[in-house]
């Protein structure tokens, strides 16, 4: 079996982040849920790097796309759009919370004759 460069680089990067996640968990910087999520993501990347043809052909077959390369591109685009939208809604919720907090602080602590 021919080993391509990305099959060495990607697993190294994945291992680096997996150990990083475990290290952060031990330092109590992230929760067990976040650790599991990060480890699962990088394990998936590691597996895809080891068996690229198996995964790309599988995705092409599932989505009915002939070329496995096109299937991977569409699949990744879909994931990126999903993450983008998720990020947008998270930011929007936080912006709203920030505005609400700013408003609550602005409306309190006024002299009695001025209290609304």
């Amino acid at each position: 079996m021919e080993i391509r460069i990305f099959q060495i680089v990607v697993p190294l990067i994945a291992l680096f982040f997996i150990f990083g996640a475990i290290f952060h968990y031990h330092k109590s910087k992230i929760t067990i849920y976040e650790t599991a999520l990060r480890v699962a993501f990088w394990l998936a990347a590691l597996l895809v790097a080891f068996f690229p043809d198996f995964f790309s052909n599988g995705i092409a077959r599932i989505f009915g796309i002939r070329s496995n390369v096109n299937a991977i591109i569409f699949f990744c685009l879909g994931i990126l759009f999903f993450i983008q939208f998720k990020m947008y809604f998270i930011i929007r919720r936080q912006e709203k919370d920030l505005t609400d907090l700013t408003r609550q602080l602005a409306l309190r602590d006024h002299p009695e004759d001025r209290t609304p």
Binding site: L98, T99, T102, R103, L105, A106, L107, H110, R114
Partner: peptide, 13 residues
């Protein structure tokens, strides 16, 4: 009388 936002949140806010 001044009501103060401690952060700039925009004209709508």
């Amino acid at each position: 009388y001044v009501i103060r936002h401690f952060l700039n949140r925009g004209a709508g806010a």
